[in-house]
Design a binder for these strands. Structure first.
Lengths: 188, 188
DNA sequence: GAGAGATTGTACCGATCGGTACAGAGAGTC
DNA sequence: GACTCTCTGTACCGATCGGTACAATCTCTC
C-alpha cells in the first residue's frame, strides 16, 4: 500500500489538528491514534522518530503551505496592493478567520521551543523577508519595510491569541482589515 | 508557621515561572516541587485543589498585579499621554522587555483554556475597557477607542510570541515604541 | 499461489503522571 | 513538658506516558 504521499498528507493534517488542540507535550499517543485512526504500530512505522518526527513533519508541512501560498506570491508580485490583499486573504483562509490557531506560535511559546527553534525561526524569518522585499519595491526604505513586515507578523499572531482568549473571531477579522491599511499606508 | 501571605506569594511566584516555562499540562508535580522547594505534602496542604488550584491562584495573582499596576492607573488618569507611557513602561517591566511570556496568553492557546476561560477573558476585557475609557477621555469615539485598545492588547501579545519565536527581544521593544505612537495618534 | 515486503494490532516495557495516606516533625500555648 | 494544630517527607496508588517487540496480516509481484 506504499504511502503515495497523499495518505501521509492526510495523516499530517490530522496530526496538525491534534498538536494545535493540545500542544506538543499535551498531544498524547492515545489522542494521536484516535485522531489519525492509526494504531501505534502504524504510527511508529510511518514515523520511526516518534512524536518529535511527527511534529517536525507537521511544521514542515505548514512551512510548505506558506511557502507556496504566501511567501512565493509575495516574492513574485509586482503590484503591492494586490499582493498584500492576497496575503491577507490567504492568512484569513488558513486560520479560518480566527478560529484556528497558529501551531508555529504555539510551539514557540511552549517547552518544545528549543527542539524546533530552527523551523520556528525560519517560518517567521522567511515570511518577514518576503513581505519586506515587497514593501521595499513599493517605495519604503529598508528599515521601514522590515519594521512594517515585523508589525504584520506580530499583529497576526497577537490577533490569533486574543481572538482565542476572548473567544471572539471578530478580533482577528478586524485586525486583518486594519493591518491591510497599515501595510499600504504611505511612508511615515 | 501559618503562611502569613508573604510566603504563599513567594510560592505563587515560583509556580508562575514553572507554568510559564512548561505550560499548564507540562508543569509536572516533579517540576513544581523542584521550583518551589516544597514536597508534595506541603503542596497539597497549601493547595488542596491540586494543579488546577495552583494555576488558578497564579492567574489571580497576575490579574491582581495588572489591576493595581495597569488597570487602576489607567482608570484614574487624566493625562492620556502620561497614562499610556506609564502603561507601556509597566508592561515593559512586567514582561522583562520581551524575555518573559504572558501566562494568560499561553493558557488561552492551550488545552486548559476552557478551565480558566473566565479568568482569561476577564484579564483582557478589563484591560481593554480601562484603556478604551482613557482613550475616550482623550477625544476618541467609542468605537475608535475600543478598536485602538484591542489593537494595543493584540500588539503586546503578538510581540511576545514573535520575540520568543525569533529569540529577539528587540521585537518587543520596537513594538511597544510603535504602539505608543499609534495610541497617541490623532483620530483617523 | 508462493514468496517478499509493507503494514498493522496487541501485548508489554519502565518511567512518570497527578493525587492520596499518614506518620511524624515542628511550633505555639498553657 | 504535655497537648494541639500546622506542616512536611515518604511511601504508595492506579492510570497513563512515549516507545518497543513481534507475530499476524495484507498487498503486490512473479
Amino acid at each position: 500500500m506504499l504511502k503515495k504521499g497523499g495518505e501521509r498528507k492526510e495523516v499530517l493534517r490530522a496530526l496538525g489538528e491534534v498538536f494545535r488542540a493540545h500542544g506538543y507535550e499535551g498531544a498524547s499517543l492515545t489522542l494521536i491514534t484516535e485522531a489519525t485512526g492509526l494504531g501505534k504500530g502504524s504510527l511508529y512505522h510511518l514515523f520511526p522518530g516518534g512524536k518529535e518526527q511527527m511534529a517536525g513533519e507537521v511544521l514542515a508541512e505548514i512551512d510548505g503551505w506558506f511557502e507556496v501560498n504566501i511567501y512565493a506570491p509575495l516574492r513574485e508580485a509586482d503590484d503591492p496592493a494586490r499582493a498584500i490583499a492576497a496575503m491577507i486573504a490567504g492568512v484569513d483562509q488558513y486560520f479560518h478567520s480566527g478560529d484556528r490557531i497558529c501551531l508555529v506560535g504555539l510551539v514557540a511559546l511552549g517547552a518544545a521551543r528549543d527542539t524546533f527553534a530552527e523551523s520556528v525561526d525560519s517560518y517567521f524569518a522567511r515570511w518577514q523577508h518576503a513581505l519586506a522585499q515587497l514593501l521595499r519595491r513599493s517605495g519604503l526604505s529598508k528599515s521601514q519595510a522590515q519594521r512594517r513586515a515585523e508589525d504584520a507578523l506580530l499583529t497576526i499572531q497577537g490577533a490569533l491569541v486574543l481572538a482565542r482568549a476572548r473567544n471572539d473571531a471578530g478580533i482577528f477579522r478586524r485586525a486583518l482589515t486594519e493591518l491591510t491599511k497599515r501595510l499600504l499606508a504611505p511612508s511615515d
